[in-house]
Nucleic acid binder design. Structure first.
Length: 347
DNA sequence: TCTGGGGTCCTAGGACCC
DNA sequence: TCTGGGGTCCTAGGACCC
C-alpha cells in the first residue's frame, strides 16, 4: 500500500555529437555528423547527428554520402566515431546515475533505466538531469512510467532536455492513435504484418485477441505484442552487470573483395581480432559464426559448434575458415563480397 | 538514400534417440 | 501401406535495438 514504484529512463541528447562539441567548442551551432571514419565519401552511416544536422533531414543509420548531400552548403562537420571517448563519457554518466541509489540498468552508451521508490518521480528526474549536466556538461531527457515500456516511450516526448511521464491512466491518451511502429520492440516488418490483420494503431493492437496474435506470431511473441499495445511490460529493471553471450567483429570493405585468397585472409584477420577481444575474458568459445554480405547486399550467416572449445587465435581463425567452406556458394564463384564478419559465442 | 557495427531473443525444422 | 509421441541438440533465419 502506498509504495510509489517508478521506472525512470534516462537518455542523453545527441550523445556522440554532444561529446564531440564539448571537446571542440568551436563546432557549437554547426551541423555535426558522427559516423564511420568521418569521411562522407566512404561506405559508412551516421551514428549520431546533432539537432542542427537533423533539421536538414539527417539521422542515424543514413549513409554518410546521403547526409553530405543534404547538408551541402550548410557548413557541416563530419567526424569519425571515437569509441574510447564515448565509452569514457558513458562511464561518467552512469556513475553519476549510480549516485542516486536506485537500481540501475545500463542499456547502451547513452541510456539507462532506474528503478526508483519515490513519491515524487518528476522531482527525482529533475535532480538527475541537473546532476548529469553538472558533472558531465551533457544534457539528457528523462521518461517516467510505471514500467520500462512506459518510461522508455515517455522519453521520446521529453526530448530534448525535458521530462515526460506516462502512466497506465495516460497510456492511451498519448499512444492510442499512434502507429504500432511507434512502440519499442515493434519495427517496420512487424508493423506491416499487423497492418495486414487490420491493426494500424496501438489502440487496435491492444483490443486484438491475444490468442489470435499467438497463432500468427508464435506463443511468446504474439501475446507479448498484445501486452505492448496495452502499455504493459513485466520486465523488471535489473541492476546486474551485463555479461556478453557473444563477441563479434565485422568489416565493410571500401572496395569489394573479389579474390578467394583475399577473402580467406581478411576473414582470418577478423577471427584473430575477435580472439584478441575475448582473450582477457577467460571464457571458452563454443561456437563460431561467419557472416558474408555479397554484392549488392544479400547477407548470409553460418555458425558451427566447435568440436573442442578454445581461446586460441589460430584455432579460431581455422574454425572461421572451415565455416566459410560450408557456405553453399563460394565467393570464387563470381560473387563479390562487401562485408565479412566473425562471431564467437561463449560456451 | 546505395545502405555500419555490435549485440539479443524467438521460431521453426531436421536429426536423432527412446 | 502407412506410419506415435516426446525430448534434446543443432542450425538457419527473422526481427529488433542502440
Amino acid at each position: 500500500v502506498g509504495v510509489d514504484r517508478w521506472v525512470l529512463h534516462v537518455d542523453l541528447d545527441e550523445f556522440l555529437a554532444a561529446v564531440e562539441v564539448l571537446r571542440h567548442p568551436e563546432l557549437a551551432g554547426r551541423p555535426v555528423v558522427v559516423g564511420g571514419r568521418g569521411d562522407p565519401s566512404e561506405r559508412a552511416v551516421v551514428s549520431t547527428a546533432s539537432y542542427q544536422a537533423r533539421e536538414f533531414g539527417v539521422g542515424s543509420g543514413m549513409p554518410l554520402r546521403t547526409a553530405a548531400r543534404k547538408l551541402e552548403g550548410h557548413d557541416a562537420v563530419f567526424l569519425p566515431v571515437e569509441k574510447p571517448l564515448y565509452e569514457a563519457a558513458s562511464e561518467q554518466v552512469m556513475s553519476t546515475l549510480r549516485e542516486f541509489g536506485a537500481v540501475l540498468e545500463v542499456i547502451g552508451w547513452d541510456e539507462a533505466f532506474l528503478g526508483a521508490v519515490t513519491p515524487d518521480p518528476q522531482g527525482l528526474a529533475g535532480r538527475i538531469a541537473a546532476r548529469v549536466l553538472e558533472v558531465t556538461r551533457l544534457h539528457c531527457s528523462v521518461g517516467i512510467g510505471a514500467n520500462k515500456l512506459q518510461a522508455k516511450t515517455a522519453t521520446g516526448f521529453g526530448k530534448p532536455a525535458g521530462v515526460f511521464t506516462i502512466t497506465p491512466d495516460t497510456w492511451f491518451d498519448v499512444m492510442g492513435d499512434r502507429s504500432t511502429e511507434a512502440l519499442w520492440g515493434i519495427g517496420s516488418r512487424t508493423a506491416r504484418k499487423l497492418a495486414d490483420l487490420g491493426i494500424g494503431t496501438v489502440r487496435e493492437l491492444a483490443a486484438y485477441d491475444e490468442a489470435e496474435l499467438a497463432a500468427r506470431f508464435g506463443p511468446a511473441i504474439g501475446p507479448w505484442l498484445g501486452q505492448r499495445g496495452k502499455g504493459l511490460d513485466r520486465n523488471p529493471v535489473v541492476g546486474d552487470p551485463w555479461i556478453a553471450k557473444s563477441r563479434s567483429r565485422e568489416m565493410t570493405y571500401q572496395q569489394n573483395l573479389e579474390s578467394w585468397d583475399r577473402i580467406r585472409h581478411e576473414l582470418a584477420e577478423l577471427a584473430r581480432l575477435v580472439a584478441t577481444d575475448v582473450a582477457d575474458d577467460g571464457r571458452l568459445i563454443g561456437r563460431v559464426g561467419v557472416k558474408v554480405r555479397w554484392v549488392p547486399f544479400t547477407t548470409e550467416f553460418r555458425v558451427r559448434k566447435l568440436p573442442v572449445p578454445t581461446l586460441d587465435p589460430q584455432e579460431l581463425a581455422d574454425a572461421a575458415l572451415r565455416v566459410l567452406d560450408v557456405f553453399p556458394e563460394r565467393p570464387e564463384e563470381r560473387r563479390k563480397v562487401r562485408l565479412l564478419g566473425v562471431r564467437a559465442e561463449f560456451e
